[in-house]
Amino acid sequence: MADTQGRLTFVLDENSGGLLHLLRQARAVAHEDLIDLRELGIPAGTLDPDLLVKLGRHARPVLVTRDGSMLEPVIQRGAWRDGGVMLFLMGKAWGKLPLAELTRRAMFLWPSLVAQAEASAAGAAWRVSPTIPATSGNAFRLVTGQHAAIS
């Protein structure tokens, strides 16, 4: 199980479409807290259960993925629970957005995503709306896990 102390490590998967570079350029979070799977030594195409187990070995991992079906197979749910990885699932609708629009929406929601992760316990999972709501906090729907309310 991952540490519950210390800073969160935001991990973007191979489907992030250049978002990692843009978030770093915008200094959204400190560089050492924002990485991709390759930087962790996890190759693209790693099966989801293996990915969740490997991420669970790192301190306070938060996976941001466009794989909205990450938790559907039972075996993946077990790996997710065992690893304590926090998930932000950006479903199929995100994948249909042009890259520029995907980036704009993700950049808008990023501060709220970070706040939601900081207020949540290890193992929480959220679905991220592809639309920009009136308040950015309404963009996240708890799938499972524990969280504290953010203000």
Rank of each mutant, 00 (worst) to 15 (best):
D48K: 10
G68Y: 10
S151K: 04
P130D: 07
L51M: 14
H21T: 10
K96C: 14
G78C: 09
P61H: 03
G95R: 14
A30V: 00
R141K: 14
R104F: 07
P43Q: 05
M1S: 10
P73F: 04
T46Q: 08
A93G: 05
G56T: 01
L52C: 03
L52M: 05
V53T: 06
P130Q: 09
K54T: 02
G45E: 09
K92V: 08
L47Q: 13
D82Y: 01
T65N: 05
R141M: 08
F10L: 05
Q25F: 07
D82Q: 12
T4R: 07
T65E: 04
G84C: 10
V29H: 00
D82N: 11
L97E: 12
G18P: 03
A44S: 11
Q146M: 09
T144W: 10
A124T: 11
R60E: 01
S129N: 14
Q146I: 10
I42Y: 07
G84A: 11
W110M: 13
R104H: 15
F140A: 12
R105Y: 15
R27N: 06
S129I: 10
Q5C: 02
V143L: 04
G17Q: 15
A148H: 06
R141F: 01
V11C: 08
A26T: 01
G68H: 07
P133S: 02
G56Q: 01
S112D: 14
S136E: 13
L55H: 03
G6I: 11
T46F: 02
R81K: 15
R38I: 01
P43H: 01
G68I: 04
F88D: 00
A115T: 04
L55E: 00
V64N: 00
D33R: 07
Q146H: 13
G6W: 09
T9H: 11
M86V: 05
V74E: 14
T4H: 10
V128E: 05
S112G: 13
T131A: 15
R127T: 09
R57L: 05
D3F: 00
L52H: 04
V29I: 12
V53G: 00
L20R: 04
